[in-house]
Amino acid sequence: MTIGDQQLLKRMNRSVLLRLLRARPGLSRARLASESGLTKSTVSLLVRELLDEGWLSEAGTTVADGLGRPSTPLQINVGVRALMGVEIAVETVRLACVSLQGDVLHADTQALADSAPAGACAQVARMAAAAHGQLNALGLRLSSIGVCVPGAVDDCTGVVRFAPNLGWRNVSLLPALEEAFAAAGLPGVTVQLQNDADAAALGEYEFSGGESADPLIFVSCDVGVGAGVVLNDRLFTGAQGMAGEIGHTILQIDGPLCSCGRRGCAEAFFGSRALEREAPGAAHAAAFFGVLLQNLWVTFDPRAIVLGGKSCTGHRGLAQAAFEMVERHADAAGMPAPDLRIARYGELAPAVGAAALALHEYLRPLQPDARARRARAARDEYRIPSV
């Protein structure tokens, strides 16, 4: 076995232990060995490493195991590492710092001062630097920063292919963010970029507090409308990062004019700006919203559909009416509806999800991480095609 193989095997085994303890805090070393199938000596070695690195902590008291022998419960250590996530929305920038278990430690919301990419990066870096100071005051170490935007993102290159409501197209945002963070004096941690709805879906999935729902769909209804899909334990982003761009699926031919120039798009019915203009037509919007959720249900057969964004938090009747329509379709078909609920973190859902990006990859070492994907994309760009 090569050194690379040994390192990958160790990462896989560490991730198994971390995922077990995230789902079931309090397991002992012996129980971890039994549940994971790893040898007791391997578990003991890996637990010691994870304790030293601040991933795990031991309970102050021992308990008896199933055979009456004393054992020490283990749990994820929420007192050493923290994750930071930022959402660049159309009108707002939201930041959240969370623990490894998803507890919000610090949050900040500001109006977006400049929608140009350079201005947005500078504002995000200032907010992140201030938040880093808050984490330092709490004695916490920043492990990663995730950023999400309302548009299609190529996570191999860090390019925002298009974010129509920000007026961005083919913006190389990730390198600009990394430069802005470095200039602001932030530590050189992993920085990742993702679509806002995709990030929010990941936050709901990773920080579920129990067994994660898979598949899971997060529908974000803000100025724009988008969906994030977790499928088979990972984000489903599509070939070019454009999966889930449901805001411009056409629900009515020759319907109301959308910001994209077409008519009858989902955004034109229940995007937040559409609802502000057409408040008396909320019931009409809810009917179309229910149709969209019904179509997502039969397309992906998810265990859960989660709603978030300004349209849902500011118009609770809209979400409830849409949920009721899905349940009526389910009753008519004689099938159980998926779990239908509002985002656990409210308007912070995309920012919290962005914070979860690096954690999600760390716990799944067989998936190439963000830096590896970018390096591979850079190699492919300069590869001479065969003839």
Rank of each mutant, 00 (worst) to 15 (best):
F218P: 00
V219C: 04
C221Y: 00
D222N: 15
V223W: 00
V223M: 03
G224T: 02
G224C: 05
V225F: 00
V225C: 04
V225N: 02
G228I: 06
V229S: 02
V230K: 09
V230D: 07
L231S: 14
N232T: 11
D233L: 07
F236G: 13
A239P: 04
Q240F: 04
Q240E: 08
M242A: 15
M242Q: 14
I246N: 03
G247Q: 03
G247D: 02
G247L: 01
G247E: 02
T249D: 10
T249M: 09
I250P: 03
Q252D: 09
Q252N: 11
I253Q: 15
D254A: 13
D254W: 01
D254C: 08
P256G: 07
P256K: 04
L257K: 15
L257S: 14
C258Y: 01
C258R: 03
R262Y: 00
R262A: 10
R262P: 02
R263S: 10
C265V: 09
C265F: 01
A266H: 03
A268R: 02
F269D: 05
F270N: 03
S272P: 06
R273Y: 01
A274W: 00
L275I: 11
L275H: 07
E278V: 09
E278K: 15
P280Y: 01
G281C: 11
A282P: 14
A283P: 03
H284C: 11
A285Q: 07
A286D: 07
G290T: 09
L292W: 03
L293G: 05
L293C: 08
Q294A: 10
N295C: 08
N295E: 06
W297L: 06
W297Q: 04
W297R: 10
V298L: 14
T299V: 11
T299G: 08
T299M: 12
T299Q: 11
D301C: 13
D301E: 13
R303H: 07
V306S: 06
G309H: 02
K310R: 15
S311Y: 00
C312W: 01
G314P: 07
H315D: 06
H315F: 05
Q320M: 06
A322E: 09
M325I: 12
V326Y: 04
E327I: 06
E327V: 10
R328H: 08
R328Y: 03
